[in-house]
Nucleic acid binder design. Structure first.
Length: 492
RNA sequence: CGGGGUGUAGCGUAGCCCGGUAUCGCGUUUGGUUUGGGACCAAAAGGUCGUCAGUUCGAAUCUGGCCACCCCGACCA
């Protein structure tokens, strides 16, 4: 492990890439555009999964699993959806290989094994799932269906970046079916709230809840809601989406139910998802030049203890002295590691735990040992303090962890506030967008204006915020009347 | 797919213009001394210089083809 990360302020994207690699989160693989998620990175993802999964269960959902492959004819069924994803689909055309007669030791796809119908590697699962739901739904008594799936999907992206955009990624996708539009809309909103709560309470990342414009809407949805987060370079990151599908998929797959009144009606649907992209959001929202900063609620390791000693005797003395504290912490559900690795020195360990974002570090050498104290360092502020070691120390650490969780959220929220601007003129818009941040502007509601702004500034409408206040205004670009401000930003 | 660039040890690199079998750092191995902020000393292992062909007594170096990857655009959770 070499010293020092690139500076965040000098080259944000290089800083990000290096951080992901050095903190042992993920690395590029031999497969173009696909990453290897390393054990440390995966353990963070597992914590995210668990928290989200619990929230899904609390809101009445259950998990199921559907196939990786979608027959092309099913994929085509919902036209808007199919067209939206067509240009980034991996397609399976053969089912076996054979020795290449012209090239010894090489294999080719056996021409005799050509599939009669090609299989699409799922970029999203609406098609295969709605085709299945058709068989599950006959009556209003079968509704609602509230299912979530944890899976991998493939979208053949041109340019990829670890966690933010990879050709294959891990995610969850919820797919629900309802008897009324109102119920489906309520579900869409409920899951958006779940995502927002997860982002803010667990990841410590404040988000703007809103609705996408038709341009940015999910292909096949009637309405797409999203949560948008601000990264430390002022760019926006879409962190999660929740779609109201209307009856689009029900019509495409002929999914009807008999109502209480005896009428035959199409089912209303929703789908919602978050992906390993959340890892990217987590990294970019909090980390600094020393490495990762993890919110305690998602940190695989909460407290690293570094003993500073000469010889086995001192190590054992320190270990014994800290045993009650470690027991106390563990009983409070706090994960602790006593790092007695003799191969690396304390300074190296300090740097390493900082790089990996461990929220709290405790050090004890003979000086502390004699004084009955420990040195406690918090990762978020890098502050160190000497604390008396007694029966209350575990409580102190617990509240410190809570404090760190609150603090990093507050810090991110303050950052977002400082980088959110009310912009009313096109001149200001062009200036401000170069500096980054969220621009709150009036927009005339047309796709044309949205596209022109994108062409000229690379900024897109991230969302129409749910809490936008009604006010009279004029579009920042066209000058036409507008009633609400929307969020413009450059995005990942 | 358009524009630019790069392939040399596990990683990062020098050498290339001006041809003579490869430099340095990190990491690794062994031994010793160390341990309150990324230790030091000593020794060692590790490279068909992306690939194929050509020029030459001789190619990492010159020429051509191919392949891969990276960056910038269009696309995107």
């Amino acid at each position: 492990m070499s010293k020092g990360l690139p500076k965040r302020s000098e080259n944000y994207s290089e800083w990000y890439n290096e951080l992901v690699k050095r903190a042992d989160l993920a690395e590029n693989s031999a497969v173009r555009g696909c990453m290897v998620i390393k054990p440390y990175g995966y353990s963070i993802w597992e914590k995210m999964q668990r928290a989200l999964d619990d929230m899904f269960k609390e809101t009445g959902h259950t998990n199921a699993y559907f196939p990786l492959f979608v027959p092309k004819s099913l994929f085509e069924a919902e036209e808007t959806n199919a067209e939206g994803f067509a240009k980034e689909c991996a397609v399976v055309t053969h089912y076996r290989l054979k020795a290449d007669p012209n090239n010894k030791g090489k294999l080719i796809a056996d021409p005799d094994s050509k599939l009669e119908e090609e299989l699409i590697v799922r970029p999203t699962s609406e098609a295969i799932i709605w085709n299945t739901y058709k068989n599950w739904i006959q009556s209003y008594r079968n509704l609602p269906i509230l299912i979530n799936q944890w899976a991998n999907v493939v979208r053949w992206e041109m340019r990829t970046r670890l966690f933010l955009r990879t050709a294959e990624f891990l995610w969850q996708e919820g797919h629900t079916a309802h008897s009324t539009a109102d119920e489906a809309i309520a579900e869409t909103k409920q899951m958006l709230d779940v995502y927002a709560r997860f982002a803010e309470e667990w990841m410590g990342v404040p988000v703007v809840k809103g609705t996408k414009t038709p341009n940015e809407r999910f292909a096949g949805a009637e309405d797409t809601m999203c949560i948008e987060a601000m990264m430390q370079d002022g760019k926006a990151l879409q962190a999660g989406t929740s779609h109201f599908l209307g009856q689009n998929f029900a019509k495409a797959f002929d999914v009807k139910f008999q109502s209480k009144e005896g009428t035959l009606e199409y089912v209303w649907g929703t789908s919602w998802g978050v992906s390993t992209r959340l890892m990217g959001a987590l990294i970019m929202a909090h980390s600094d030049d020393n490495g990762l900063v993890l919110p305690p609620k998602l940190a695989p390791l909460h407290v690293a203890i570094v003993p500073i000693y000469k010889g086995e005797d001192q190590l054992e003395q320190i270990r014994e002295k800290l045993k009650p504290l470690m027991t106390g912490l563990k009983s409070k559900g706090i994960t602790v590691k006593f790092d007695d690795d003799d191969q690396t020195r304390p300074g190296f360990k300090f740097a390493e735990y900082e790089l990996k974002g461990v929220p709290v570090r405790i050090a004890m050498g003979m000086r502390d040992f004699d004084n009955g104290t420990i040195e406690v360092a918090r990762r978020d502020t890098m502050e160190k303090q000497t604390v008396e070691l007694n029966a209350q120390t575990d409580e102190f650490i617990k509240s410190l962890l809570d404090d760190i969780q609150t603090n990093i959220y507050q810090k991110a929220l303050d950052f977002r506030k400082q980088n959110t601007f009310i912009v009313d003129t096109w001149e200001d818009f062009k200036k401000q967008i170069e500096l980054g941040g969220f621009l709150m502007c009036h927009w005339d509601g047309t796709s044309e204006t949205e596209e022109k702004i994108k062409e000229e500034t690379k900024a897109t409408i991230r969302c129409i915020p749910l809490d936008a206040v009604e006010e009279e205004g004029t579009c920042v670009y066209s000058g036409k009347p507008s009633k609400k401000r929307v969020v413009f930003a450059r995005a990942y």
